[in-house]
Design a protein around this nucleic acid. Structure first.
Lengths: 188, 188
DNA sequence: CGCCGAGTTGAACTGAATCAAGAAACGTGG
DNA sequence: CCACGTTTCTTGATTCAGTTCAACTCGGCG
């Protein structure tokens, strides 16, 4: 749990009192691998912080699911637009490994808004975090080749990457499993 | 200015008093075409709402600029990450046509936070708006062909599209000007 | 009038898709 | 713990969208 405080304090100092209120709302959850935290069609009621584990976001499709996000611990997890708008999520959030998260419900977050000075900060952090990730992703998709994207992922998370099935990685990178298999062969 | 209120009230009802405070901080600005609202390297101090005009976001490059966003009126404009983090923007924001915007400075926004109930809403709106746009963009880049992306743009903004040089559109779609020229020829 | 940037068109090339088939890994039931 | 069936991964052949390099046209502007 300390790592959550550390994560927040990278950008904003928290008073002990605020941290007290904030952390009292967090509830720890543990899940096995291949567990859905949220299924497409459901309404998101949680903003979560991953302590340990790998998580995949995907849009279920008849033929091949579209995997568009991985979270490797120390980050927010939520179908954020669904959380904000109370509309059904268009995607599923699923664990790839055993996972530990700390959850905040929508009502908890409202309470934190009212009781602390850091509510805004948390909301802003979440938004900022998610927004920046998407921005970087956009640039990556526009300027990098599939191979570069794979190598980037590989550099960031060399050991964790082995835990993810190739077809999910391929989808995330934006190519077919066959193409990724060939890239792997070429660079190894 | 009424359209700004309408825009906000699509999702949240504002009290007259809050609107009063909010709108009093907005200052109207008009710019000619090809005017930079913010240059790469500068720190963003504004969150703006476009009333009229077309705006382009791009990362300046030696050879070809990378155009990654267009705003066609009725939307937020800001180098949002720079605005939040106070770090230099990595991109330039420039008008393509004559443009009218309503600006809010960072300090104005802080004041609104303190004086009204809608401060959070505004911040959240901006974040949500920007985040959702990026999410959709990600999906478009992952699942659509260049031709589909062009047709989508064309369907959304048929008349405005004529005002944008082909090379900017090509960059946004993620292909070369030559390729877009051929797509245009093929579908017309 | 001549220049220059933007757009068009052509030809050769390349990264990735598609279709197809075989090999490896994985989970489940006996 | 093995055997089987299913899913995942690999590899090959073909096709295609888009790149690159290059030449030419067009429209605006000094």
């Amino acid at each position: 749990m300390e790592q959550i405080r550390t994560y927040f304090e990278k950008t904003t100092k928290l008073s002990d009192k605020d941290w007290e209120i904030f952390s009292s709302k967090l509830s720890k959850k543990e899940f096995p691998k291949k567990h859905s935290l949220l299924k497409a069609g459901q309404i998101e009621n949680h903003l979560s912080f991953v302590e340990k584990g790998i998580i995949r976001f995907y849009i279920p499709k008849e033929e091949n699911d579209l995997t568009f996000t991985f979270i490797f611990g120390n980050g927010f997890v939520s179908s954020y637009d669904s959380f904000l708008t109370k509309k059904p999520s268009t995607y599923t959030i699923e664990t790839l490994t055993e996972t530990t998260i700390w959850q905040l419900t929508f009502d908890d977050l409202q309470a934190i808004y009212n009781e602390t000075e850091i509510g805004n900060t948390i909301g802003r952090h979440a938004a900022e975090d998610l927004f920046l990730k998407k921005s970087n992703r956009e640039l990556s998709l526009l300027t990098q080749t599939a191979e570069q994207r794979y190598l980037d992922l590989f550099t960031e998370q060399p050991h964790l990457l082995q835990l993810i099935p190739l077809k999910y990685l391929a989808s995330y990178i934006g190519i077919t499993p066959q193409a990724l298999s060939r890239i792997r062969k070429r660079i190894s």
